[in-house]
Structures are given as structure tokens and as C-alpha cells.
Amino acid sequence: MTITEKLSSGITIVELCGTIDASTAPELQRHQAISDPTRTIVIDLARLDFLDSSGLGAIIGAAHRKEESGANMLLSCMNQKVRRVFDITGTVRLFHIFDETAAAIDYATTLRKSQ
């Protein structure tokens, strides 16, 4: 798994690449932008090939903590394999999911303005 961070219109975009399972999930949890509860981020999943429940748990945990402190985590470009994991576990309802990263960034900026 590789994590790449980008900044666009003042919003952090975290791009996840490769696979996330029990062996890589701790790394995801430790990542600065993801673990920072006050930072609104967009997670770009376009290049994520595989996600299991350990990875899902890490994402949900981070989203919970962001939500508690008024920040958001938006997801974009989920492929079919990854979407299936969210779908089966019923955790789709937790997230705002976009099919394009740019749209997610736009939404994140409007969220920030309204706060």
C-alpha cells in the first residue's frame, strides 16, 4: 500500500494505492492527515485494488473521530471490488461517496464555508 497526499483548493486529498488488509491497516491509521480529527479530507480510492475489514475498520474509525470534531471524510472513485465491501457491511450509509475526486473537493469546500 502507498499513501500519497495532495492539496487542492485547501483540501487534503489522500490517495490510497494497492491493497489494505490487516498488515497495512495500522499504517493507514497512523497517517497524519487521516488520523487528524480536525482535518476534512477526501480519500481517493481510484487506485485501491483491495480492501478487507481491517482496512474498512481503520477508515470508519478515522471518519468517526473526524465527525466528532466537526470535520469530514469524503470518499471518491470507489471501484466495484471496494464498493462491495462497503455494500455488504452496510457502512455505505456513513459516507458521502463521489464518482469523481474534483466533485468531492467542491463539496468539501462548500462544507467548509458553511461551517
Binding site: 478487507d52 475489514s53 474498512l56 481503520a58 470508519i60 468517526h64 455488504i88 457502512t91 456513513l94
Partner: peptide, 20 residues
Amino acid sequence: EPDIETYPERGYGLMLIRTL
């Protein structure tokens, strides 16, 4: 089974296996 209403961080493993 995880209590979906609270969206826990753990416990989805067996749920996935049973569904798949």
C-alpha cells in the same frame, strides 16, 4: 454480528465471509 446502527470499527470479518 456487528451492530450496524453504531458502525463499529471491528467485527465485519465474519459478516463478509458469511455473505460472500
